[in-house]
Simulated assay, not measured.
Amino acid sequence: MTFDPFGDFATEGYLRNSLQLKDPVEVKESEHLAFEASIEEVLAYLAKKRPIDYKAVLKTHEILFSGFYPWAGKDRNVLVPHLAVFKGSQDDPHHTPFERPELIKRSIEYALELAANKKRFRDRPGEVMGQLASAHPFLDGNGRTILLVYMELCYRGKFAIDWSKTNKDAYLRALSDEIRDPFRGHLDSYLKPYVVDISSREDWPEVIGGIKGLDGLDKEGIIYANLDNPEIQRLYKTYRTQPIE
């Protein structure tokens, strides 16, 4: 966790956090405390927000993490528009490239459009989650922000995912496959057995508290690279070029 896209890790700590923490364990603990303290406020905000749009996604992140990250609610295109973000090594054929900064908003908005088709959404729940996750709009806190937005979208689609029966590693594998090779059913196949009829929002804090590895696509193996790098440009040209059905 020592590399920091802001370039001031030594003085400001990991991602310029408000406590200037550098130790990975302390960062995770403090970050998660901020998250847990804000869940109720976020759920109330999302329940009233009509419609769920890109600004709502930004606001969700701001509410959740402003107690720890002063930049909470700002996306990568605002903070580090010159950097690409990957999970895993660039040389690893199984690396996961996230969306280019300037396309984050469009990617999120497309996910929201997919969710608006309620029948398709229930039949293909992985498409929406995969599209949201591939956008990776924030420097940190993506998994938790996206999960809450996704749960609200499911609620409006009159269904829910029984997260208590999912497996962290299997879910993250399916999610990574969906990001690399979207709209081919990777995450649909994993999530569909766990689709249930709508659940009460009152149960959500307990449900969320029981989900492990919510930051699985945020800290572990995340690398940054300059978008001007010819190799990075080549990767993006060959990445996610399949037609969308």
Rank of each mutant, 00 (worst) to 15 (best):
D140P: 08
G143K: 12
I198Q: 14
L172C: 05
A170L: 15
L191G: 06
Y190P: 05
K168W: 08
D197W: 09
G157K: 00
H186W: 08
K212D: 05
K168P: 13
L187T: 04
L172H: 10
R156I: 11
I179P: 00
L153K: 02
Y190W: 07
T166Y: 05
P182D: 00
M151G: 04
Y155D: 12
I211V: 09
S200Y: 12
E178W: 06
W163Q: 06
K192Q: 09
D169E: 13
P182V: 01
G157I: 04
S164G: 11
L139M: 02
V149Q: 01
I179K: 04
C154L: 04
Y194H: 08
D169V: 09
D188I: 14
E178G: 01
S189Q: 10
D203M: 11
D197M: 15
I198L: 13
P193N: 07
K192H: 07
K192G: 04
V196P: 15
L148A: 03
L191E: 03
S164F: 14
A174T: 09
G210V: 03
G143M: 00
E178V: 01
D177N: 08
L175R: 02
E206K: 15
K165L: 13
Y194M: 12
Y194C: 09
V207A: 08
L139I: 00
R156N: 09
T145W: 03
L147A: 05
V196Y: 11
V207S: 06
V196L: 07
C154M: 12
C154D: 02
R201V: 11
S199N: 13
M151A: 07
A170K: 14
S200E: 13
K165S: 11
L139N: 01
G209Q: 05
R173F: 15
L175Q: 04
R173K: 10
P182E: 02
W204N: 06
E202S: 15
L147I: 05
K212F: 12
Y155C: 15
F159E: 03
L139V: 00
W204P: 10
L153Q: 00
V207G: 05
E206F: 14
K165F: 09
N142T: 02
L187E: 06
P182H: 10
N142Y: 02
D169Q: 12
S199P: 12
C154A: 06
L187Q: 03
R201D: 13
K192R: 06
G210M: 03
D203R: 12
R156T: 05
K212E: 07
I146V: 04
S199L: 06
E202D: 15
I208K: 05
K168R: 07
S200D: 07
V196W: 12
L175D: 01
W204M: 08
L187I: 06
Y171Q: 15
D162Q: 10
Y194N: 12
M151T: 07
T145D: 03
S199Q: 15
L139A: 02
E202H: 14
V207I: 14
P182A: 06
K192C: 06
I198F: 13
L172Q: 09
L172N: 08
V149E: 01
F183T: 15
I161C: 01
